[in-house]
């Protein structure tokens, strides 16, 4: 599936209709046109998550804490 690049208006509409924090337009714009260099933008992350979605994880459960098996071996 080819993902459409997100528009600022998409995030604005979600902001208006979600039980969520009302991030400012400037912060939502960083998702569309990233410039701070820490996140690579929503479209890039979604493309990566789409690839991840195609991995068959079978019945693998979510990770929990690391179980202790007798402490130091």
């Amino acid at each position: 599936m080819t993902l459409e690049p997100p528009k600022l208006t998409t995030f604005q509409e979600l902001r208006a209709s979600s039980a969520a924090h009302a991030f400012a337009d400037a912060e939502l714009r960083e998702l569309v046109e990233p410039k701070y260099g820490i996140i690579t933008g929503y479209a890039t992350l979604m493309a990566q998550l789409e690839t991840l979605r195609r991995i068959d994880l079978g019945a693998t459960p979510p990770a929990q804490g690391v179980p202790v098996q007798g402490g130091d071996p």
Binding site: E30, Y36, I39, L45
Partner: peptide
Amino acid sequence: ADFRAGLALGQNLLAEHYVRAKRMVT
């Protein structure tokens, strides 16, 4: 501003994305 933008990203991920990521950790 950079941290707030990161938090905004966190708000726009799907719950299933988060759970899938935790399954990848396993």
